[in-house]
Amino acid sequence: MLLLVLGTRGGPMRLKILLALSRRPMNANQLSKELNVDYKTVRHHLEVLERNGLVERVGEGYGAIYLVNDLLRRNWDLVEEAARYLGHDSLAR
């Protein structure tokens, strides 16, 4: 998990997505608006997070909802550690 957030160029954006999804499940369009980021950028990062087992997708297509999975919630301290390292003060759960 830390490698996906701290060890890559896209890590800070993936952290923002995880923090947003920890507050409430959202689809890619909602995340795009919430984070003020291009929809395609959000989709790319969601695919990376899903492929690596950090988020789950419920549904298909445009309206699919994403949420932080149970394994990541149980290990949320890793997300908090990454957020502190990157200077994020919003550690919502």
Rank of each mutant, 00 (worst) to 15 (best):
S90G: 01
V37L: 13
R93Q: 01
L86S: 01
G11S: 08
V48F: 05
H88M: 09
L18Y: 01
H44M: 02
R57Q: 14
A92H: 09
L31I: 10
N75R: 10
N69E: 11
R84C: 03
I65V: 12
R84T: 09
S22D: 10
L21S: 05
Y66D: 03
I17S: 01
L49D: 08
E56Y: 08
Y66S: 02
L6F: 13
L3C: 02
N29D: 14
V5N: 15
H88R: 07
E81M: 15
L19E: 00
R84A: 06
K40A: 09
L67T: 14
D70C: 05
A92Q: 06
L46T: 10
G53N: 11
A92I: 00
L35I: 11
L18A: 08
G53R: 00
L67W: 04
V48Q: 10
R73L: 05
D89R: 03
S32L: 13
G61F: 04
D70Y: 05
V5K: 14
D89W: 09
N75K: 08
H45G: 02
G59C: 02
G61A: 03
S90K: 01
R84I: 08
K40L: 08
R51M: 13
R9M: 03
L86T: 01
L71S: 12
R24E: 02
N27I: 06
L91N: 02
M26K: 10
E80W: 06
W76Y: 07
N27H: 02
T41C: 04
G87F: 04
E56R: 09
L71G: 13
S22Y: 04
T8I: 11
D38C: 09
A83V: 03
D38N: 12
A92L: 00
H45P: 06
A28Y: 00
R73D: 06
S22M: 08
M13P: 11
A20E: 09
D89A: 13
R43A: 04
K33P: 10
K16L: 15
L15N: 07
D70W: 06
K40F: 09
L54T: 07
W76F: 10
V37G: 07
M1V: 08
H88D: 05
G11T: 11
N75Q: 09
E50V: 06
L3I: 14
G7R: 12
W76R: 02
M26P: 11
T8E: 15
A83G: 05
D70L: 14
N75C: 03
H45C: 03
L19R: 05
R73T: 06
T8D: 15
A64D: 04
S22I: 02
A82I: 05
E81F: 12
N52D: 15
G63H: 06
K40P: 05
V48A: 07
S22W: 03
V55G: 01
L67I: 10
A28P: 03
W76Q: 01
A28K: 01
A82C: 10
L18G: 11
R84Q: 06
S32C: 12
E56M: 06
L54N: 07
V42S: 05
D77L: 07
L71W: 12
R74W: 00
H44P: 03
A83T: 07
L6R: 14
L35D: 13
A64E: 03
L71T: 13
L49S: 04
Y85N: 09
L67S: 15
A28M: 01
V5D: 15
L18I: 12
